[in-house]
Design a protein around this nucleic acid. Structure first.
Length: 819
RNA sequence: GCAGGGGUGCCGGAGUGGCCAAACGGGAAAGACUCAAGAUCUUUUGGCUUAGUGCCUACGCAGGUUCGAAUCCUGUCCCCUGCACCA
């Protein structure tokens, strides 16, 4: 079987028939099927891509057959670090490597039989693309959503750039796994925090997995509580703290500042604590984020006291390494009796522990406590709130404090503004000019794009490649026309990818980011497919940008991706396939050996699409056998004996496979297909085979097309209509079954009558799938009859046919057998 | 700690109230073909077994509902994934 030849042939025929073309002008209902676009890597497609795109292509082909006007585009997330690093190491300019890589990957995608509409292709390194990144940036700036500030940022020492919080996974760089350090640097931020509520509320509208939604919810980290004002002792100064547990306020025995809190130095200035505090700050600063977390709680009394507003107690003020500057107010009220961290700290520094919540019918002794009591309970030592359940007390004490004007209700979020600056070359330049006179000046919209110069030097220490091109750096101030310098940072590639799906709708537009009407027709994306690693990055940014564009009036929807499927990883040896681990199987090798259809069908069959699976060559061979069986259907002899049976099966398969595909249960659909093929082998009819091929086509398009044409079909299967259930056939079959059962019942009575014998057992051997009804037949027989007879029905001649069991009774044909 | 998802035979993985000792694929065993291997095909693959259309034990564990439970309910144990000194 020459798969390569067959596959090439059909790929060409599909291209000639333009089956992938998504028409902007169509009366059909649209369907937007999208996969996350790849970075054009020098290593080409990996198995993860193959899995991702097989899922997408199968779905797109399915939807086309269902009669939708399907847009199924592909493009390139072509800015980014790897090619820049290659440029430094190997001296190849990114523009060269990227464009070569794109060509390679494109041909690999073709080999896999992916039916993209290439007329809509985009590449983010194209100035015609990134000018709209810059345009977006200017819009954000104009609306006050982009700002520049010097702040502690996540710095990856290996990538030599800052990272957004979303790029840091478990304290490490998402790209290179290097531990991230904190570095103070001036960067551009986007106020994604202005959109927390829409981002949260919008989740209810979209069909994403609860897991993914939870990730985003977690990341946004909404928590409602109150900000309580503690007074500085002997002063009018107010120290606000944020808490979600005002019910424990009576048990607060100290307050703690984050070490970096600016107030701290003010408070100790000129006191005997100053040098000690400075020492402590120096030590904490040295620690990386990770070390700081893993280290034991450590802190320092700073010689000052605060007043607990609820009982006017004078309590000491500390600084401590476990308090975060960028959450809440950077200061906490510590309740050692009921918070484990505070408990440990209090034990270490011998601070009093006051129990204010107790379980019912039990007294807690603070001296004997081994750990904080964090369960529910009844308030004690809490003045007029004694005896109240602590959950209820949260509300009561809050109200009391708000009334007293020492607190206000507040909602806090964990999510931070989005740092978009990268100190790297291969990205979209940020369209900003710095003028000594006028300050920060945006480039005018009509001057876009600010082109990324190709003539730069790589690998110069202490500077970025962009800064080595003086022609680029030195610019005229747009305002005063005086000498000025350009921003040499570029944007994170996540800006590029936060709107590319909109550009597909109108990829050639030179006048505007896109035509509103075209986007209105195609968007939102009906089915998005991609990795879960983008849960809080790309998927959050895209939602944000779309909401922003809606506010600007550019789009009329506020959620870009209605349905999302996160495909699972492909493992080998128990871990994810990766070049660095050396455990990869190259999809192209599999295609060369077994053909694209085998690879696709295998990837879809082997596991639920969202579950990781272990690669197995043996399993691939199993699917290969199946594919070969399909080929043999082209010259199979019809067997009309069981026409009704196999045609009814066909109806069932249409129903099941359609349902499974709609639910993205590709593996189950494949199981049904394989099962169908087993039955077809036994009772083949042309009608059933044709339905089978149509159902198989989205999964294994080439071989389905080939077999289809060998059966004498002139029209492409790709252009055929998705099979519909033929109710007549189902009814017909049900009727037949009903008749057969009727007849069986009569026959049983009849046989007994004429033989005058009472059989011990009756075995009904049947083919039709309505086995349940046969099984129920026993119940319809008379009681007297039932008392002596066992009725058994089976449709499995293989297992139950005694012929196969040590040559017992002959049982070749379906019918009634009495013993 | 918070949040999400799971426990089915040798393995992967279907099955959500009776066609279930459990689909489909892999593995293993036997046979056919072959000088042989591979490929292919056929059969077997929980235990007992008088070989039966039988009995017993089984879908993490323990109970419950039901004529009937892998499937529903309650409790419990275990595993995975994400976030995390977030106050």
């Amino acid at each position: 079987m020459d798969f390569k030849k067959i596959e090439k042939k059909w790929q060409k025929k599909w291209a000639d028939a333009r089956i992938s073309k998504a028409s902007d002008k169509s009366k059909k209902k649209k369907f937007y099927c999208l996969e996350m676009f790849p970075y054009p890597s020098g290593f080409g497609l990996h198995m993860g891509h193959a899995r991702n795109y097989s899922l997408g292509d199968t779905f797109a082909r399915f939807k086309r057959m269902q009669g939708f006007n399907v847009i199924y585009p592909m493009g390139w997330d072509s800015f980014g670090l790897p090619s820049e690093n290659d440029a430094i190491k190997k001296g190849i300019h990114p523009i060269k490597s990227i464009e070569e890589n794109i060509e390679t990957m494109k041909s690999q995608m073709a080999a896999l039989g992916l039916s993209y509409d290439w007329t809509r292709e985009v590449a983010t390194h194209d100035p015609e693309y990134y000018r709209w990144d810059q345009w977006l940036f200017l819009k954000l700036l104009e609306k006050g959503l982009a700002y520049r500030k010097e702040a502690l940022g996540n710095w990856c020492p290996s990538c030599n750039t800052t990272l957004a919080n979303e790029d840091v996974k478990q304290g490490k760089c998402w790209r290179c796994d290097t531990e991230v350090v904190q570095k103070k640097i001036e960067q551009w931020f986007v106020k994604i925090t202005d959109y927390v509520n829409p981002l949260l509320v919008g989740l209810d509208k979209i069909e994403w997995s609860s897991h993914l939604k939870a990730l985003q919810k977690n990341w946004i980290g909404k928590s409602q509580g109150i900000e309580i004002n503690f007074k500085l002792f002997d002063s009018k100064e107010i120290l606000p703290v944020f808490t979600t547990r005002p019910d424990t306020l009576y048990g607060c025995t100290f307050v703690v500042f984050a070490p970096e809190h600016p107030k701290v130095l003010d408070l100790v200035r000129g006191t005997k604590y100053e040098s000690e505090v400075n020492d402590f700050l120096k030590r904490t600063k040295k620690l990386s984020e990770l070390d700081r977390i893993s280290k034991e709680k450590a802190g320092l009394f700073i010689g000052k006291y605060a007043i607990n507003p609820v009982n006017n107690e004078k309590i000491p003020i500390y600084i401590a390494n476990f308090v975060l500057m960028d959450y809440g107010t950077g200061m906490i009220m510590a309740v050692p009796a009921h918070d484990q961290r505070d408990f440990e700290f209090a034990k270490k520094y011998k601070i009093p522990i006051n129990v204010v919540i107790q379980p019912k019918n039990q007294k807690l002794d603070s001296k004997k406590m081994q750990r904080a009591y964090t369960e529910q309970g009844i308030l004690v030592n809490s003045g007029k709130f004694n005896g109240i359940n602590n959950l209820k007390a949260i509300e009561k004490i809050s109200e009391y404090l708000v009334k007293k004007k020492v607190a206000r209700k507040i909602t806090n979020y964990k999510i931070r503004d989005w740092n978009i600056s990268r100190q790297r070359y291969w990205g979209a330049p940020i369209p900003i000019i710095y003028c000594d006179k006028c300050g920060v000046v945006p480039v005018a919209e009509k001057e876009l794009p600010v082109k990324l110069p190709l003539d730069v030097k790589f690998g110069k220490k202490g500077t970025t490649p962009l800064a080595t091109n003086e022609k680029f750096v030195n610019a005229k101030c747009p305002k005063c026309k005086g000498k000025a310098k350009r921003e040499t940072d570029t944007m994170t590639t996540f800006v590029d990818s936060s709107w590319y799906f909109l550009r597909y709708c109108d990829s050639k537009n030179k006048k505007q980011i896109f035509d509103k009407n075209k986007v209105k027709y195609w968007m939102p994306v009906d089915q998005y497919i991609g990795g879960i690693e983008h849960a809080v990055g790309h998927l959050m940014y895209s939602r944000f940008i779309v909401k922003f564009l809606k506010k600007l009036g550019y789009v009329n929807f506020d959620e870009p991706f209605m349905k999302l499927l996160n495909q699972g990883m492909v493992n080998l040896g128990g871990i994810k396939m990766s070049k660095s681990k050396g455990n990869i199987v190259d999809p192209m090798e599999v295609i060369n050996k077994y053909g694209a259809d085998t690879l696709r069908a295998y990837l879809l069959f082997i596991a639920q699409p969202d579950t990781p699976f272990e690669w197995s060559d043996k399993d691939v061979q199993g699917i290969y056998k199946f594919i070969q069986k399909v080929v043999s259907f082209a010259d199979i002899k019809e067997n009309k004996d069981k026409k009704t049976y196999i045609e009814t099966i066909a109806q069932r398969k249409i129903e099941a496979i359609t349902k499974h595909l709609e639910n993205l249960e590709y593996n189950k659909a494949m199981i049904e297909l394989i099962d169908f093929s087993v039955k077809l082998e036994k009772y083949p009819t042309k009608y059933a085979i044709k339905i089978f091929l149509q159902l198989l086509y989205p999964f294994a398009p080439h071989i389905s097309e080939e077999t289809w044409s060998k059966l004498g079909e002139k029209k492409l299967i790709a252009l055929s209509e998705w099979p519909k259930i033929d109710k007549k056939k189902i009814n017909e079959s049900a009727e037949k079954a009903e008749q057969a059962i009727q007849k069986t019942r009569e026959d049983i009575y009849h046989i007994i009558e004429i033989t005058k014998k009472k059989p011990n057992r009756i075995f009904i051997y049947v083919i039709p799938p309505e086995l349940k009804q046969y099984s129920a037949l026993e119940k319809t027989l008379s009681d007297e009859f039932k008392a002596n007879v066992k009725v058994f029905a089976s449709n499995d001649p293989k297992k139950k046919d005694p012929e196969n069991k040590a040559g017992k009774a002959k049982l070749g044909k379906p019918g009634i057998y009495l013993e």
